[in-house]
Amino acid sequence: MNTHTDASPPQPFCPDCEAGIGHAHREGCDVARCLVTGLQRLSHDAESCRCPRDTWTGLWPGATECAEFGWMLGPGLPDLHRLYTAATWNPALRRWTRPGHHTPTPEGITR
């Protein structure tokens, strides 16, 4: 689902590392996420986590889910704090899921 209600329009380049849409963030990028935890990649242990590099989508990580869940502080201002504290990261889908909602994985297993 790709709804951008009240979300900012896509930006062609990452505001930190300038990766283009669909391209991997550069190492050391503040915007890149760990695809295992959904949190900032800079704060994960690169030695123990060998997740693939995150790609720039044109939107701040989590903004799409905030708009989808109705968790906006105002037009174009996703409530990322609420997302990170109330939602659950699904590494198989590489997205945040609403609390209490079971989300099927690509393999068809409900989590």
Rank of each mutant, 00 (worst) to 15 (best):
Arg26Pro: 01
Arg26Gln: 09
Arg26Asp: 14
Arg26Thr: 00
Arg26Lys: 10
Arg26Ile: 00
Glu27Ser: 10
Glu27Cys: 02
Glu27Phe: 02
Glu27Gln: 03
Gly28His: 11
Cys29Pro: 05
Asp30Lys: 01
Asp30Asn: 00
Val31His: 02
Ala32Phe: 07
Val36Asn: 12
Val36Cys: 04
Gly38Asn: 04
Gly38Met: 08
Gly38Asp: 01
Leu39Met: 14
Leu39Ile: 03
Leu39Asp: 02
Gln40His: 01
Gln40Thr: 05
Gln40Asp: 07
Gln40Ser: 08
Arg41Gly: 00
Arg41Val: 08
Leu42Cys: 08
Leu42Gly: 10
Leu42Ser: 11
Ser43Ala: 13
Ser43Asn: 15
His44Lys: 06
His44Asn: 10
His44Met: 15
Asp45Thr: 00
Asp45Leu: 10
Ala46Glu: 15
Glu47Gln: 04
Glu47Asp: 15
Cys49Thr: 12
Cys49Ile: 11
Arg50Cys: 12
Arg50Gln: 15
Arg50Ser: 14
Arg50Phe: 12
Cys51Ile: 08
Cys51Phe: 00
Pro52Leu: 05
Pro52Met: 11
Thr55Cys: 15
Trp56Glu: 05
Trp56Cys: 06
Thr57Met: 09
Thr57Asn: 04
Gly58Val: 01
Gly58Arg: 09
Leu59Lys: 11
Leu59Arg: 15
Trp60Asn: 11
Trp60Thr: 13
Pro61Lys: 13
Pro61Thr: 11
Gly62Val: 13
Gly62Ala: 07
Gly62Tyr: 13
Thr64Trp: 01
Thr64Val: 13
Thr64Gln: 06
Glu65Phe: 11
Glu65Gly: 03
Ala67Val: 06
